[in-house]
Simulated scan of single mutants.
Amino acid sequence: MDKICFATNNPNKLKEIQRQLEGQYQVVSLKEIGCEEELPETQETLEGNSAQKAQYVWDNYKVSCFADDTGLEINALNGDPGVYSARYAGPQRDSDDNMDLVLKNLEDKADRSARFRTVITLVWNGEVKQVDGIAEGEIITVRTGDDGFGYDPIFRPNGYDKTFAQISADEKNKISHRGKAVEKLITLLKNL
């Protein structure tokens, strides 16, 4: 089975992807390839950050890998938090603080439509490809649900009466931004 590194330090994302690629690829962590440093994320777009992280791993470790960057884009907030989703409320990258700030900033807004967008960059033996996935939905007014991570307790996908934090991981993988991007990644990997 081919080995591929998922260039993330987020254990929740790693588990989610390992489940999706189980039986097809052995997905290893940064730590497993000896990468202990924080990956650079200095770009102004999801596409740029995703590419920067994947290229860094390839350039420094010569391991085929993929990296993602995900943003919550809220229409009433002009697309914010977007590329700054993880650190929206500050450098501490605290999900609770981030959700509190989003809810506060939406208090007087009628339009609560939003989307999660994930961009994945694959570097396979030096060759670079990029795919994305989008989940449309809305921001609800109070946190609901105990599963998931990040903004999941306040994001309800279109066509559902539950948040991402209330549905099973398997169900979320079928409809989520990351799930859709990973499906495109799997197609890319099959065609290599």
Rank of each mutant, 00 (worst) to 15 (best):
M1Q: 08
K13M: 11
K13E: 07
Q18E: 12
Q18V: 08
Q18C: 08
G23P: 02
Q24P: 11
Y25N: 05
I33F: 07
C35K: 00
E37A: 10
E37T: 04
E38Y: 12
P40T: 07
E41V: 03
Q43I: 07
E44S: 10
E47I: 11
G48W: 03
N49I: 03
Q52V: 06
Q55D: 11
S64C: 04
D69V: 00
T70L: 08
G71K: 00
L72M: 13
L72E: 08
L72H: 04
I74R: 02
L77M: 10
N78G: 07
G79K: 01
G79N: 03
G82W: 03
S85W: 02
R87K: 12
Y88W: 11
A89S: 11
A89M: 07
A89G: 08
G90Q: 06
Q92A: 13
R93V: 07
D94T: 05
S95V: 01
S95L: 05
S95N: 08
D96V: 09
D97P: 08
L101K: 10
L103N: 09
N105D: 15
K109T: 14
D111I: 12
S113F: 14
A114M: 07
R115H: 14
F116Y: 13
F116W: 11
T118W: 05
V123M: 10
W124R: 10
V128R: 13
G133S: 10
G133Y: 04
E136L: 15
R143Q: 10
D152L: 06
I154V: 12
R156P: 00
R156V: 06
P157I: 05
P157V: 05
G159R: 01
G159L: 05
K162D: 00
A165T: 00
I175L: 13
I175G: 09
K180T: 06
L185M: 10
I186R: 14
I186W: 11
L189C: 11
K190H: 15
